[in-house]
C-alpha cells in the first residue's frame, strides 16, 4: 500500500535521521518522487540542517582567548579572600598531629606530676598492701600495745583501701607508660611522614589508637592552610 502525505509527515524525522529500514526508505522515496509538497518539506528541513551545520558565520573567539583563560586561572585563585591550600589527607593528619602533640605533651606532663603529688609512693610497685598494713599495724602494736584481734579488725578495714590505692597507682604507672609510648610513636609517625622513604608506622597500635581518638578532630580541620603555595612558573598552571 502506497504511503499518504500524512504517513510521510509522521516519518519525516526518522527518514532524515536514517532511522528507517531500507524498505521503508524506498517507500518514502517513492512517495517523494510523486509528491512535490512532501519533497519540499523534507528538503526544507534538510537544507536547514545543512546551513546550521556548515554555515559558520558566527564571530570567532578572540585570538588571545586561550591565553586569557589561562592567565585568569591563577588570578582567580589569588583573588579569593582566603587562599586555602588543599592538603592531602595524609598531610592534613600530620599537621593536626603536630598541633595535638604540642598540646598533648604539657597536658600529660601535668597529669603525671599531679599523680605523683597525690600518690607519692605509687611508683613503689614491689610493696604489697599486706606488707604495708603489717608494718603499720606492727608499729601501732608496739607503740600502743593493741590486741591482735583489734589489729586484725583494723586490717580488714584498711586493707581494701590500701589495695585500691595500690591499684590506682598501678593505673597511673600504666598511663605513664602508655603516654610515653604514644608520644614516642607519634614522634616516629611525624618523622616517617616527614621522610617519605621511611616505612609508614601503620602497625603501631598506640599510634593507630591516637589517630582513632583524633579522627573527629581531623575531619573538622581537614583543609589547613599551612604550606605556602609554590611559586608560579610560566609553564605550570595550578587548578
Amino acid at each position: 500500500m502506497a504511503l499518504t502525505c500524512r504517513n510521510v509527515q509522521h516519518l519525516h524525522d526518522a527518514y532524515l535521521d536514517s532511522d528507517l529500514s531500507a524498505s521503508m526508505i524506498a517507500e518514502v522515496d517513492a512517495h517523494l518522487l510523486q509528491c512535490p509538497e512532501c519533497q519540499r518539506q523534507i528538503d526544507m528541513v534538510r537544507v536547514c540542517g545543512n546551513v546550521i551545520s556548515r554555515d559558520q558565520s558566527e564571530p570567532r573567539a578572540a585570538d588571545d582567548f586561550a591565553a586569557r583563560v589561562l592567565s585568569a586561572l591563577p588570578r582567580q585563585r589569588a583573588a579569593a579572600p582566603a587562599p586555602v591550600v588543599l592538603l592531602t589527607r595524609r598531610q592534613s593528619r600530620r599537621v593536626v598531629l603536630e598541633r595535638v602533640a604540642a598540646g598533648f605533651i604539657p597536658a600529660m606532663a601535668a597529669m603525671i606530676g599531679l599523680s605523683l603529688l597525690v600518690f607519692p609512693a605509687a611508683t613503689d610497685h614491689s610493696t604489697s598492701p599486706d606488707r604495708q598494713v603489717g608494718r603499720v599495724l606492727g608499729e601501732s602494736a608496739t607503740r600502743t600495745a593493741v590486741s591482735p584481734t583489734l589489729a586484725l579488725g583494723v586490717q580488714d578495714i584498711v586493707s581494701p583501701t590500701l589495695s585500691s590505692i595500690d591499684n590506682a597507682s598501678r593505673a597511673v604507672g600504666d598511663l605513664q607508660d602508655f603516654a610515653g609510648l604514644t608520644l614516642r610513636d607519634a614522634r616516629e609517625q611525624l618523622a616517617a611522614s616527614a621522610n617519605p622513604p621511611a616505612a609508614p608506622a601503620e602497625d603501631a597500635f598506640s599510634g593507630a589508637f591516637l589517630m582513632q581518638m583524633l579522627h573527629p578532630l581531623l575531619g573538622v580541620v581537614s583543609p589547613v592552610p599551612t604550606e605556602p603555595a609554590p611559586a608560579q612558573t610560566d609553564d605550570v598552571v595550578r587548578f
Partner: peptide, 9 residues
C-alpha cells in the same frame, strides 16, 4: 590535571 599549561592551552 598535572598542571601542564601547554596541554590546557
Amino acid at each position: 590535571q598535572g598542571g601542564c599549561a601547554v596541554s590546557a592551552h
